[in-house]
């Protein structure tokens, strides 16, 4: 099959016949559109593409893709995708998840899929709220969030998904948002092309239960001064004409500076390929929430052997050493005796 050219497809070919049932105005629509229009450009095959999801609004995503897909159970998509990716290295396995699914009930599977570097691409739609259960606070909600389950304000400190992924030894971590299709597509493509586990946090607006949570960073009017684009090898600058920038002091602390004050040479140059995750981690801590200038783009992209390839090389080694499995020999591998 691989010797036949990948057929030319359009967005329509990648859209299933199911009616999309997210709330009108949901950020998920733009993410879906970005994916459906990106895949025809990526030279991949529908039959080799699998979307696996858990539970939540985001988890309906596979139903709308005309590919293979599994809408599984809450939080378990990274585990299920691990089994699929390890046994079927020929497939492109995507995981679509939300902040509750990936970071609350499924937190354990997420961090272990990342540390193992399973060859899967995880999209984490972060809307800082539980949507499908109608508006409880989530593990990414800001402290003090007033919801149905927290009428006096939430008490727990939120996760920062990018920091968490970096702490879990992720080899690829990026952030994008639902208001910029081009940027989403660039991040999805980079994540897909990365061999190993890739996590993309997508700031996604829930217009029903948490409307405008990311407006300051993603809104067209404020974006220029609030969104810090990360570009590999470039000094980190943002704002009108790049008048602001990120500086790292001798202690490794990052701060926002006026470029005019210190000159461009004083700015931090982004290096997504640094072997240690320190810089990426520091960048992930730059904003305490989407109300401060927030970095977007690839935080980290390093090469590390992926889990499935290593599993397969152990199989090949074993076969080279012992020959292919011989059932007869296996049954006689212990002490045997014969009765005539």
């Amino acid at each position: 099959m691989t010797d036949v050219a990948v057929p030319i497809t359009t967005r329509k070919d990648w859209s299933s016949d199911q009616d999309v049932r997210w709330c009108p105005g949901c950020g998920d629509y733009s993410i879906l559109a970005a994916m459906q229009s990106l895949l025809p450009e990526m030279g991949v095959r529908r039959e080799n593409t699998v979307f696996v999801s858990g539970i939540g609004c985001a988890a309906r995503f596979p139903y709308y893709m005309n590919t293979y897909g599994m809408h599984s159970i809450h939080g378990r998509a990274p585990a299920i995708a691990t089994g699929l990716a390890v046994t079927r290295p020929d497939l492109d396995v995507w995981v679509v998840s939300g902040d509750g699914d990936a970071l609350s009930i499924g937190g354990n599977h997420l961090i272990h899929a990342l540390r193992r570097n399973v060859n899967i691409t995880i999209l984490l739609f972060n809307n800082q709220i539980y949507g499908l259960t109608k508006g409880q606070y989530s593990p990414t909600s800001e402290v003090g969030k007033v919801t149905k389950s927290t009428p006096f304000g939430s008490l727990d400190t939120p996760f920062n998904p990018v920091s968490l992924a970096l702490g879990a030894e992720a080899s690829f971590v990026a952030r994008t948002h639902d208001m910029d299709r081009k940027h989403m597509q660039e991040m999805f493509r980079r994540a897909h092309d990365h061999r190993g586990a890739a996590l993309v946090e997508v700031y996604q607006n829930c217009n029903v239960f948490n409307d405008g949570a990311f407006d300051e960073v993603t809104g067209k009017a404020t974006r220029e001064e609030m969104l810090i684009p990360l570009e590999h090898g470039q000094p980190i600058r943002f704002g009108a004409d790049g008048h602001r920038g990120v500086r790292m002091n001798e202690q490794g602390h990052l701060s926002l500076v006026e470029v005019a004050d210190l000159g461009e040479q004083a700015l931090l140059v982004h290096d997504e390929a640094r072997p240690d995750p320190d810089l990426a981690f520091a960048l992930s801590r730059l904003a305490r929430g989407p109300h401060e200038p927030t970095p977007m783009g690839v935080f980290r992209a390093v090469e590390r052997p992926d889990y499935g390839s290593q599993v397969d090389s152990q199989l090949l080694d074993a076969q080279a050493r012992k020959g292919p499995g011989d059932l007869e020999a296996l049954l006689r591998s212990g002490t045997t005796w014969t009765v005539d």
């Binding site: 099959m1 293979y68 809408h71 079927r88 020929d90």
Partner: peptide, 12 residues
């Protein structure tokens, strides 16, 4: 998965 023409979605 990998079989052309059998693309389908399953779930709980």
């Amino acid at each position: 998965p990998g079989t052309p023409g059998l693309e389908h979605r399953i779930g709980g």
